[in-house]
Nucleic acid binder design. Structure first.
Lengths: 329, 329
DNA sequence: CTGAAAGCGCTAACAG
DNA sequence: CTGTTAGCGCTTTCAG
């Protein structure tokens, strides 16, 4: 049905081998021959059949992005952002991208297709068994928004510490000293990092990390409202709270509104993720911007670096964060 | 490197053709033969090579989902919802899914890959040239959240009228008569439908559609705040407003808060999309739930119905909407 | 720098 | 119900 390399060969008088060369690495073919091939190809509207190419090269040119987070999907704004970067960057290459959640991958796509991918990007909390499942099949893995302790696994993470330090800095600049934190049970890696970053930054500004100003909650708004209400109605009330993510920060704002506490006059709030909801709350939420798109891009570059063995594939890449200032502080 | 059908053939003593049959349609092979094949395959950890299969069958087993909306990506919660349904449903089939935006598709993936897909789902406002580009190559198209006037194109849409009628009904039940609308310039199809649905529902409840209660704005929150402020500070102020989507509704709430107008006592608000931000606003936003996931699922079923010529592929499928009641009315 | 030819692993007639 | 066999379109030695 389609135009094949043979048609081009016939029309141009050049062998199929050379035509193949022209389309994969033009520099290996003499200028004039190349021109003849391109002319014939253009005349015939030829374009290479990727499947036949895959077949001959014994490669699939497929990579996958798995979202590894309980019940998270592409609907999660954070992972959608990463995914967006991954999609765009992948589009710039020969590779094709399969997107799935860890759950779905195991369920349906799993075994049959695992061997059809050449590399995988794991977003979020990827369990060790999942990782070693790929590694045991020699499928390179890149982690994004996750890091395995002690592991040498290539990964792309966000500079939690840099972002949170800016948040604390802003609080202190506004004269706040009693700084609290309401944070959620995210993935082990993120929960740990965010807490450590908070503690480190507080110390850096000479502030005590007081347990009485800390609360844990589930990462949903009702849970955050409850936790924040507890914090705001306690004996000693903080005058600034850092929310572990924007949802939680929105819960803090909601709790304050319900308690008649004015923001930012009586309570300053900063969130994390700089998601769409920051401009929905009233007052609007100052938040730490995480460059998800960039993380996605970089994870693809890293993975392809490994696949192409160009040496760009190891170690940890860190993406900068940036405070996005609105009206809540 | 991999185990092939020949290895299985050798071990089981069955021909490659039969093994192929076993894996594509087991019923065409006698029970006992089938068992022998499965045993040998299991022993060798054989699984079929999809690329070789594609090559032999001259099919790619690929479908695509294109998001056709200016500057929208997978980050858009609405399209992410549709995409999620598409992904899950596609995972249940043999097909592989390419996801892209219209822009990116044209730019990079475009021509080369167009001929590699067997069908395409177009989300949102797909221009006629785009549609006919696919049709001219005999690639079936399914529209989702869009409908071409006068066209016989298969499509999946949401029951805008059903949802908006419920919204107006709730307003009237609460005693509101002066009902306004702030809506945005969405895609031509959606803008048109939503306006028509509003007008029809108002008429149904015996209410006048008064231009003085209507405002248009861009679909972003600042623009909505501005439009709503104009509406709320005019000579005659509506006592209920329907927002064309949740962002706009959030802008209406924000404008009301800033003007000191109490919700829902002095102003009732209903949005559309039932997105995450509904539980972020204070008070929380009553909104029309659009079943994006279902729309995604159905569009895949429809497309595959066309590809398999099982007759399930024509006409318009309508997905029900449902009012999700919170505190803003 | 270019050509000839042998596959890549599977499927689909066709024949039995 | 099962086996034989000729491709599917491209890549890649290996010669020249």
């Amino acid at each position: 049905m389609g135009i094949t390399i043979y048609d081009v060969s016939k029309l141009s008088g050049v062998s199929t081998a050379t035509i193949s060369r022209v389309f994969s690495d033009p520099s290996r073919v003499r200028e004039e021959t190349r021109r003849k091939v391109f002319e014939a190809a253009a005349a015939l509207h030829y374009s290479p059949n990727a499947i036949a190419s895959s077949m001959a090269r014994q490669r699939t040119d497929k990579i996958a992005f798995l979202i590894c987070k309980k019940s998270a999907t592409i609907m999660d704004e954070f992972y959608a952002g990463i995914c967006n970067g991954i999609m765009q960057e992948t589009n710039l290459t020969e590779y094709q991208l399969l997107i799935s959640t860890e759950d779905d991958w195991r369920k349906t796509v799993g075994n049959a297709k695992t061997k059809q991918i050449e590399g995988v990007i794991l977003g979020g909390f990827a369990g060790t068994e999942l990782i070693s499942e790929f590694r045991s099949r020699n499928i390179p893995v890149v982690l994004v928004n996750n890091k395995v302790p002690g592991g040498d696994l290539p990964c792309v993470i966000s500079d939690e510490y840099g972002g949170i330090r800016e948040a604390i800095r802003l609080f202190t600049e506004k004269g706040h000293k009693n700084i609290g934190m309401v944070t959620g049970r995210f993935s082990p890696y993120i929960s740990g990092e965010r807490y450590k970053a908070f503690a480190t930054a507080m110390k850096e500004f000479g502030l005590p990390v007081s347990v009485k100003y800390m609360r844990m909650c589930d990462p949903d708004i009702e849970s955050a409202v409850k936790a924040a209400t507890g914090l705001l109605t306690g004996e000693e009330r903080p005058d600034a709270i850092f929310g572990g993510n924007d949802i939680i920060a929105a819960g803090i704002i909601k709790a304050a509104i319900r308690l008649g506490i004015r923001i930012p006059e009586e309570l300053a709030v900063i969130g994390c993720d700089d998601s769409l909801l920051c401009s929905v709350t009233e007052p609007e939420l100052t938040s730490i911007h995480i460059n998800c798109f960039r993380m996605g891009e970089m994870s693809v570059k890293k993975l392809i670096g490994i696949l192409d063995k160009n040496g760009a594939g190891s170690g940890t890449d860190i993406v900068a964060e940036e405070l996005h200032i609105r009206n809540s502080v």
